[in-house]
Design a protein around this nucleic acid. Structure first.
Length: 602
RNA sequence: GCGCCCAUAGCUCAAUUGGAUAGAGCGUCUGACUACGGAUCAGAAGGUUGGGGGUUCGACUCCUCCUGGGCGUACCA
C-alpha cells in the first residue's frame, strides 16, 4: 500500500522535531524510535473527532524513553515543529493536546489533490497494484445439493462475492469458487428417504427438490426413533462411493436439479463464480494424498477408522476414512487444497464458512501443515500458511438457531421477493414516473438484503430480523442508493462538464472539508476491508460518506434557507459539483465492491 | 467434562485492535425554506460497557475468577 503523502510529511517533521527537542537522547539511541520517521508513521492514529485533526500521535508511551511528561513532550515537539517550518508553506499544522500531537493538513492542498485524483481516475480511484501477479481463491456460498438455499447461506454468499470484488480492485487474480456439498453420508440419507417415502414423486416434478427436502427433514425426525435408518444411510452412501449404478443415477438427478434451482437464485442475487465444483469431483484425487499421509507416517488406524493425530493442538484426531472405508469432508478439504493449488498456484486461499466449523478447518490446516513439515517442503512452497478460514457468526432467527435438519429454514428467494415487492410498492408511491420500475425495484430490494449482511462485522452473530432487512431507512443499502441517485440527479440538473480545476477555497466549509477528508479515506477503507477480510469496513465507510454529503446537501444559510449546491454563482457551483461527482463516484464504486448496484434514479 | 466464541442505550450494532467526552441506526419525543429527490436533514431523551479482582500513564479492549448464553467436541457437512 503506498504511503499517504501527508502522513509521511508529518512523520518526517515530527521525527525531526524530536531530534531537536531531545538531542542528548537522540545521541544516545540514534535513528530509532521517535527519531525514526518510519516508526512515527507506523504509530499514527486517527483522532476520535475529525475536528481534532487528520492524524495524531499519542506520546504517552515515549514518556519513559525521553524521561519527560507526556504533556511536556507534546507541547515541546509541537513548538519545535512550528518554529522549524515557519515561513515555509505549511502542509500540516501540528498542535499539542494533552498527551497527543494532532495534525491538521493543509486543506487547499488536500482538496485539490483528492478531487483531482477521484475525477481523473473515476471508478479506478482507490485501485492499487498490491495484488498484481498474485492469485487468491475465495470459496463461498458452497451450498448443499438437495437442500434449500436458506438465509444461513446468505452470509457466506454475499460476504464471499464482495471479497471477490475487493481483491479484484487491488489487482489480484481472483478465483471465486462455489464448492458444492454434493457428496457425503447425507446423500445416503436422502436416497434412503426417497426410496422409502418418495415413490409417488415424479422425476419431472418441478418441486422435486423441495419435496426431497421434506423427506430429508422426515428422515431426521424418524431417525430419532429408528436407529436402523442411520445405518441404512451409511450403507447406501458407501454404495454410492463404490459406483453403484442405480444409486449414482438418483444422485445425478438430485444434483442436476438442485444446480438448476441454485442458478436461478444466484442470477437473482447477481452473484457470480469463476468456478463451480463439487466435493464429488475430488473422488479420484483422494487416494494419492492418503498415500502421502501414510508414507509420511502421520496416519494410523483407530477403532477401524483412518485418522491423523493432532495431539499438541487439543483437537481431536482428524478422520480421513470411516471404519467402512468411506471418506469424510475433512478428507476432501485436505485433498481439495492440494488440487486447487495444482490448478491455480494460489498465494492465498480463503474459506468463507461459518465459525461453527472452525475446528474442522484447524484440523484440515493442521494435517496439511504436518504433512508439509514431515516432507520438508520448503517454507515458501507450503500451502498451510496460505489457507485462511474467513469465519463469520451465526444467522439466528428469533430465539431459534437456523437448522437445516429440523427444517427451520427461511428461503433466500422469499426474502428477496419480499424486499423487491416492497420496494416496488414504494417506488409506485413516491416516483411513479420512473421508467424502469421493476429493474430498479430489483436493484434496491437486493441491495437492502445484501447490505443487511455486510453492515455488521463478520464475526458478530446476527439475528435475522424481517423488519431490519426490509427497512430502507437509516443505515441501509437503499440509503446509500438513494444518496447515489440524488447525486446523479444533481449532475443531470447541472448538465455541464465537471472540472477539477476549481476554486478550492470555496469548499472550505466544515461540511465540505469533512467530505473531502472522507473521499481521501476511501483507499484506507478498502485496505481495512482486505486486512480484516471483511467488507464491513467499506459498508460503514460509505455510510459515513453518504451521511456527510446529505448533511452538506441540506445545510441552511443563516436565514434558514437551504444553501443550494446549484446556484447562479458559476464558480461556486462548479466547485461544489466537483465534490458531487467525486462523492457519486466513490459511493457507486464502494457499492460495487459490496456487490450492490447503484441506480441513477429510484 | 474439555475447547473456542460472545455479553455495550429499550432493540440492532460500532468504538481506529491499549488512547482523548463509549458512538451510530431503529424505536420514542420536538422540529425543517411551500422539497436542487423528505428512502433526507437538525435536535432531545436514553450507559456503573453482565459482576468482582488484577496488569499501567490509560482498559469496552489484555490476565484471572464468577454468572448467563452460543458453537464444537472421531466415523454428518
Amino acid at each position: 500500500m503506498s504511503k499517504d503523502k501527508f502522513k509521511q510529511h508529518f512523520a518526517n517533521i515530527i521525527a525531526d522535531a524530536f531530534q531537536k527537542c531531545y538531542p542528548e537522547k537522540y545521541e544516545e539511541i540514534g535513528h530509532y524510535q521517535v527519531f525514526d520517521p518510519d516508526f512515527i508513521y507506523d504509530n499514527l492514529e486517527k483522532p476520535k473527532d475529525p475536528k481534532m485533526g487528520r492524524f495524531a500521535l499519542p506520546v504517552f508511551r515515549f514518556a519513559r524513553l525521553l524521561s519527560d511528561k507526556p504533556q511536556e513532550i507534546a507541547s515541546k515537539v509541537a513548538q519545535a515543529v512550528d518554529e522549524g517550518i515557519a515561513g515555509n508553506k505549511k502542509l500540516v499544522t501540528v498542535t499539542a493536546a494533552g498527551g497527543f500531537l494532532n495534525a491538521k493538513v493543509d486543506f487547499n492542498t488536500l482538496t485539490m489533490e483528492t478531487l483531482q485524483d477521484v475525477l481523473d481516475k473515476g471508478k479506478r480511484y482507490g485501485t492499487s497494484t498490491v495484488g498484481e501477479g498474485r492469485t487468491v481463491l475465495v470459496e463461498y456460498s458452497s451450498v448443499n445439493i438437495a437442500k434449500p438455499f436458506g438465509i444461513a447461506h446468505l452470509r457466506t454468499t454475499i460476504l464471499g462475492a464482495s471479497l471477490r470484488e475487493i481483491f479484484k480492485k487491488l489487482g489480484y487474480n481472483v478465483v471465486g469458487l462455489n464448492y458444492l456439498g454434493d457428496w457425503g453420508t447425507q446423500f445416503g440419507k436422502l436416497i434412503v428417504a426417497y426410496l422409502k417415502w418418495g415413490a409417488d414423486i415424479s422425476k419431472d416434478d418441478p418441486c422435486l427438490i423441495d419435496k426431497l427436502f421434506e423427506l430429508y427433514v422426515r428422515f431426521h425426525a424418524e431417525a430419532k426413533q429408528d436407529e436402523l435408518l442411520d445405518e441404512k444411510a451409511r450403507v447406501v452412501f458407501k454404495k454410492l462411493e463404490n459406483g453403484d449404478t442405480d444409486t449414482t443415477k438418483l444422485w445425478k438427478l438430485f444434483r442436476s436439479r438442485s444446480i438448476e434451482k441454485f442458478k436461478r437464485i444466484y442470477d437473482r442475487l447477481g452473484v457470480e463464480f469463476d468456478l463451480i465444483i463439487g466435493e464429488s469431483d475430488l473422488n479420484d484425487k483422494i487416494e494419492p494424498i492418503i498415500e502421502r499421509l501414510e508414507k509420511a507416517g502421520l496416519s494410523r488406524i483407530s477403532e477401524g477408522a483412518l485418522v491423523v493425530d493432532l495431539e499438541d493442538t487439543q483437537l481431536p484426531p482428524c478422520l480421513l476414512k470411516k471404519a467402512d472405508g468411506a471418506t469424510l469432508y475433512a478428507t476432501r478439504d485436505i485433498v481439495g487444497a492440494f488440487w486447487r493449488f495444482e490448478k491455480y498456484q494460489y498465494d492465498q486461499s480463503l474459506y468463507v464458512v461459518a465459525n461453527s466449523q472452525s475446528d474442522h478447518f484447524k484440523q484440515v490446516f493442521g494435517v496439511i501443515s504436518r504433512l508439509e513439515e514431515t516432507e520438508h517442503t520448503p517454507e515458501d512452497e507450503r500451502l498451510a500458511p496460505r489457507l485462511k478460514h474467513v469465519d463469520f457468526g451465526w444467522v439466528k432467527f428469533g430465539d431459534k438457531t437456523m437448522s437445516t435438519r429440523s427444517g427451520n429454514v427461511i428461503p433466500v428467494e422469499d426474502v428477496v421477493n419480499k424486499a423487491v415487492s416492497l420496494v416496488k410498492q414504494m417506488i409506485i408511491e413516491k416516483n411513479p414516473n420512473l421508467k424502469a420500475i421493476d429493474k430498479t425495484a430489483h436493484m434496491v430490494g437486493v441491495g437492502a438484503v445484501k447490505f443487511s449482511q455486510l453492515s455488521v462485522k463478520r464475526l458478530t452473530d446476527v439475528n435475522f430480523d424481517w423488519d431490519a432487512v426490509l427497512s430502507f431507512e437509516g443505515e441501509t443499502g437503499p440509503y446509500l442508493q438513494y444518496t447515489h441517485a440524488r447525486l446523479c440527479s444533481l449532475e443531470r440538473n447541472y448538465d455541464k462538464d465537471i472540472k477539477s480545476d476549481i476554486e478550492v477555497t470555496l469548499l472550505a466549509g466544515e461540511e465540505e472539508q469533512r467530505i473531502v477528508e472522507l473521499l481521501a479515506d476511501f483507499p484506507e477503507a478498502i485496505a481495512d476491508a482486505v486486512r480484516n477480510y471483511d467488507p464491513y469496513f467499506i459498508a460503514t465507510y460509505l455510510l459515513r460518506l453518504a451521511g456527510a454529503f446529505n448533511k452538506f446537501y441540506q445545510r441552511k444559510t443563516p436565514d434558514g434557507r437551504i444553501d443550494k449546491i446549484i446556484s447562479d454563482d458559476v464558480t461556486l457551483t462548479s466547485a461544489r459539483m466537483a465534490l458531487v461527482t467525486s462523492v457519486r463516484t466513490v459511493i457507486g464504486e464502494g457499492l460495487h465492491l459490496l456487490g450492490i448496484q447503484a441506480p441513477e434514479e429510484m
